[in-house]
Design a protein around this nucleic acid. Sequence first.
DNA 1: ACGTAGACTTGAGCGC
DNA 2: AAACCTCAAGTCTACG
Length: 264
Amino acid sequence: MPELPEVETVRAGLEGLLKDAVIVRVEPHRSGLRRPFGDLSALSGPVRAVRRRAKYLLIDAAKATLLSHLGMTGSWRIGDAPRAHDHLTLHLADGRRAVFNDPRRFGLAALLDAAGHHPVLAGLGPEPLDPAWDGAALRVALRGRKAAIKAMIMDQRIVVGVGNIYAQEALFRSSIRPQRPAGRLDLAACHRLVAAIKTVLNEAISVGGSTISDFVHAGGGTGLFQHRFQVYDRGGQPCVICGAALRRTAIAGRTTCWCPRCQR
DNA sequence: ACGTAGACTTGAGCGC
DNA sequence: AAACCTCAAGTCTACG
């Protein structure tokens, strides 16, 4: 999916396009995706804000909040002709339509409950761009863990928003070998890693995220951060720092590229 | 509890 | 060239 920078880019775009627009009708095109949509009709009314928590979007209307997740291939767009894999349409009073499209159907859409909660939000870890999340906090979360550090920073209970692209890029930038047992990182390494995660996420947000094949902004544009990848999908190619051939391995089932010389 | 593999799904592509 | 193949921004479950 879209990781945090992509979701944040969609959030900002959707907020600009939807704020103060009035939803007059919610039209599902199937019963659900990863989970049933449930009854979405309470979403009708003016849109107040579009928020983000982890990789989830929250569209606040007057009487309800729509939670959505883009899965691997989900997108929101405004006012287009219908397309294959459109799953949910929000009809607006001005005639535009906000449409959720997702070819692989790993996404999610549902309303928050009356208390503003949803089961998928329970148990999520800290936001990586929260100033309170620092190396010391990460070190505490990793204590005793033997799994690879890369798997741990992709675990949404440890920290949210980091997926397979930005985990690899942040580990390269902090010179940490992705397969190192997480609990053995010292405080200095945790500080470096947290700083690298924040920097790479902020850089990616500033250029509208990464587009590999599917990701598009709510306004239809693509991201640009894919041009700045230093290790992602670069197995066999030279390290941008030392020139050594980057290695490619699987960690917890996810392809991982890293420099055998720069990352320890 | 912890860690990993497999499942879910559709589309892209010369690598793996 | 093609795709009967493998791989993909993510979660969720089921096993050891």
